[in-house]
Simulated scan of single mutants.
Amino acid sequence: MNLHLQGKRALITGSSSGLGEATARMLAAEGAAVVIHGRNGGRAEAVAAAIREGGGVATVALGDLATDEGAAEVARQASADGPVDILVNNAGFYRHLSWAEASPAEWSETYNVNVVSGVRMIQHLVPAMRERGWGRVVTIGGGLASQPMNTHPQYNATLAARHNLAVSLARELKGTGVTSNVVSPGAILVEATKELVTQIGPARGWGETWEEIQPNAVRALIPNDRERFGEPDEIAAAVAYLCGPHAAYVSGATIRVDGGLIRSAF
């Protein structure tokens, strides 16, 4: 399907690896000029170079979105070759902590990185989208926003905030031609997920090798109708749909891409 993204410029935050990288590659394949964002210049440039080698258009914007100055610099770099039409707020992080381990300082840092950083980019880039009468904001959320686990509560709460702010933004952008939506992944098989599951698998009796651990981890942690982890491209495809004209009537929505997740608990 042609998503008609030719001539559009997309900034994908946190796109030097993982879901962000997969999303950038897919948007570029659909004809968008993509801006790869990260804090490590070598990693970001490697992703951009690979996209260019495949015939796509990609540039790099470096900076720390957790500071006002860093976010402003990323917005400046992203707009250097033309206005940003699509903002994918993907950047974020988590630490696997218990309630006892997640200090107030950890809560504050996680909220700043996972929520306020996205707000900074919205405030920098969306006003110009509104003036032009077209734009897309896609926030990457997660199933833990509505089905939080007992662990890493500071992270669960920030996902709920990301979902909430995206809907509030959609209401704010009523009638402007700019939409705001959420893609909510389940457990996606990026390196961090595989590393965590591999680390805790043997102690939980799931096996010793990845081949043994994976099916048991799915049954224990993320029982779903598809009986597997998701793939990064499955998230990227949902984002790409929301960025195109076929999704012009989708506003304030949350698209779950989680295999029909039944529950999530450690």
Rank of each mutant, 00 (worst) to 15 (best):
V197Y: 00
T254A: 10
A240R: 04
D68R: 10
V88C: 05
L27S: 03
A203M: 11
I51E: 02
T110M: 15
Y111L: 10
G31V: 13
A48E: 01
L173V: 14
E195H: 12
S16N: 13
R25C: 13
F229W: 03
S168H: 13
T176D: 02
G63N: 12
Y94D: 07
N40Y: 15
V182T: 00
A102C: 11
W99H: 03
V115S: 04
N164I: 01
D225S: 14
L125Y: 00
W134L: 13
G31H: 08
L169R: 00
A247F: 07
A22Q: 01
A166T: 02
L144A: 08
A236N: 10
A265P: 00
I51W: 05
T179L: 11
G63R: 14
A100W: 15
L261I: 15
I213P: 02
R256G: 13
R162P: 00
I235K: 08
A217H: 00
N164K: 06
I122Y: 00
V239D: 02
V190W: 05
H163G: 05
G186V: 06
G205S: 09
P215T: 01
L173F: 13
G41C: 05
E208K: 10
G55F: 06
A22H: 03
W107F: 14
G142R: 12
R171G: 12
Q214V: 05
S146G: 08
S108W: 14
N112G: 07
K174H: 07
W210S: 12
G230Q: 04
W210D: 14
R25A: 10
W134D: 12
S180N: 05
P232D: 01
T139S: 15
D64Q: 09
M149W: 02
H4Q: 11
L159H: 08
G55D: 01
A253W: 04
H37W: 08
A50P: 02
K174W: 07
D225Q: 14
G135H: 09
T158Y: 04
G7W: 01
D68W: 11
G18T: 07
R162Y: 03
G41T: 12
A22C: 09
I200Y: 14
R162K: 15
A29P: 07
V34E: 01
G141M: 04
A265M: 15
V138N: 09
P223H: 07
C243H: 02
A71M: 03
L65P: 00
S146C: 05
R228H: 04
D233T: 12
A49R: 11
E73R: 13
R219P: 04
A80E: 14
A170C: 08
P83T: 13
R132D: 03
G82W: 06
